[in-house]
Design a protein around this nucleic acid. Structure first.
Lengths: 337, 337
DNA sequence: GCGCGACGTCGTAGATGGTGACCACCCCGT
DNA sequence: ACGGGGTGGTCACCATCTACGACGTCGCGC
């Protein structure tokens, strides 16, 4: 392992001068600088980031703690973070909490002990302790996707309520009346807001909320499948479905396929969140698409700003969704007459 | 920031003793250990991983350098790595090279300067220099998914040739004769092996390889779309398609959908690699599924072994694929008679 | 019973690689 | 000749680990 001292000796200067050349902070005689750079090249010196981090008591790593790597929303989001982070000279460490508060907690402690420069997190629970720990330790944090009450942090959220309202209103508009809802875990703000949007749209249209048409699942494929099965088996007789995230939509669809129910003739479907290759699924799926990449970009920008200005006021960004109407929710063929 | 010295003072012992208690290496009087642990708890001490890493000149991070975060194969693979890594006390840093050799090179240098404990990489090119740099620096490396010639490293690969051969043979078996192939970048071993498998199956069946039925693209959705369009526009008149990865399969399918071609009646399709929710796509897609999670698991196990035994012989794991027959490749309806 | 030796536990101090404040020196200009 | 600006070296520091040494205790033997 070649150190800065080896370079200094080889170039006939002090280690401090090598450091200055490498960091470009102070002025160095061009002739010396030249000698240093050529020595660096000749010896194949790479500076030891760990030692540097220790001295500066801060690394150049960002931790991005997401709740599910296999959910396309998060991978797309991560791409957004990455592009900004790299441009700003940071590397991104992806941590997958798997919707497991304990794993999440471990990652947060790791982020602290590893002195990460900042954290972007989509909390897997509404427990505030962990994120509070980060804040109290002075670690810059941006919360994304899910709201966390009682904390003054930068956040980048999506207008879940409005997105869900539009989706439900669209179904009502298309003539559906018995609209079922498969909601997410009630402790997640995304889930409650989407449920609120669903209720609001019903209310606006003068429809009453029927508890038998509502199920709450876990934002996973399996949960969506089971919820759909339960809706069908319990005789709720829905003529449409609003599913509160992408994976549950897929699960519900799989249940419908298995039971030979036609979409949208037997049941119309609108899903929340982008589904990759939605165009290939038959029928094509109407979705409320989220600007995942943009969520990542904005979160990264907020984090970069927070690092340079730790005491700035908290910024809360709310991004709009977009209803993408496809075949799974087209107008109901009027039965009877 | 509370250091080991604060704990030592609070517990009335030396910092060395605190270190010993924390690491459990040497024997410490139980009474003292008790005082130390309670002081740790009382002061809320968390050890500084950066300083620790400097001292041990090695971190507890694994870099996983993949070529596309948005490809489900890699996310699933990462899950496999994660599960093993966490159990072994390592954290996983995910790096997305985006099939870009320059980005990849940067990540490799970062892995070295950050003193990562090991690297798992799916090389984005056949350039050997970067990985050689890691090896020469004594950094444990496991190469996955893609072969790299001239290097003695642990590898975990999938039997691409055999998988492709089975897929093509299956199409032949189903009565298709003009089987097109959309291959991947010719500098990637996965691509060449899959192409070899395609050719082998043709040869075995006594069919000749028709260059007009072959296209090479970039393993991306767009590339698959364009290649399919080109096959159709150039009058190659394929009656079936073998696409060499998941994203290109999706792209090709989208092209077929757009042109109102029926699958498998007009053209049968077999894709390589798992496609999430293949069941929802109409028709359901026949695929050669790869054991992505298992690739990750085995790679992680090899890496852990390599870290403890740096001089062990290189292990090369070859995992089998599995042909999953679905609707997109069912027997051709015999035309005419 | 006392002394010596051995073993075990704990503290001291140095090492890890890099940074940057501070200081010294040199040269030039006035 | 003196002062100032610019350039480069010295050294303390970051937090932790660990080799080595010292000290205390216990046991055994005389």
């Amino acid at each position: 392992m070649v150190t800065i001292y080896d370079v200094a000796r080889h170039a006939g200067v002090s280690a401090a001068t090598v450091s200055r050349v490498l960091n470009g902070h102070a002025k160095v005689d061009p002739a010396l600088a030249e000698r240093v750079t050529s020595s660096v090249a000749e010896l194949g010196y790479r500076r030891n980031a760990v030692a540097r981090n220790l001295r500066k008591s801060r690394t150049s790593l960002w931790a991005v703690i997401i709740s599910d790597v296999e959910n396309p929303f998060f991978t797309s989001m991560v791409r957004g973070v990455e592009d900004i982070a790299l441009a700003a000279g940071y590397s991104v460490v992806l941590c997958n909490s798997d919707e497991n508060p304990e794993k999440e907690s471990n990652y947060i402690v790791a982020a602290l002990t590893e002195q990460m420069a900042g954290v972007i997190i989509s909390p897997s629970s509404n427990r505030v302790d962990d994120v509070k720990l980060l804040l109290d330790s002075g670690c810059p944090v941006v919360v994304i996707d899910r709201e966390l009450h009682g904390l003054r942090t930068d956040t980048v959220l999506v207008d879940n309520e409005r997105g869900a309202e539009q989706a439900t209103a669209h179904l009502i508009d298309q003539g559906y009346r018995r609209i079922a809802c498969i909601g997410g875990p009630r402790w997640l703000s995304t889930a409650t807001h989407r449920y609120d949007g669903y209720r609001r749209a019903l209310g606006t249209a003068g429809l009453s909320l029927e508890p038998s048409l509502v199920r709450f699942a876990d934002f996973r494929e399996r949960g969506g499948y089971d919820a759909m099965a339960s809706l069908l088996d319990d005789g709720a007789e829905p003529d449409a479905l609003f599913a509160a995230n992408n994976l549950m939509t897929v699960g519900a669809m799989e249940c419908l396929v298995q039971r030979d129910l036609a979409v949208p003739t037997d049941i119309a479907v609108v899903g929340f969140d982008t589904i990759p290759w939605a165009d290939l699924i038959r029928p094509t799926l109407t979705t409320v698409s989220q600007p995942a990449y943009e969520v990542g970009r904005q979160a990264a920008q907020l984090l970069a700003r927070r690092i340079t200005k730790p005491d700035a006021d908290a910024t809360n960004v709310l991004l709009p969704t977009e209803l993408q109407v496809r075949a799974s929710s087209t107008r109901r063929i009027s039965t009877g007459e």
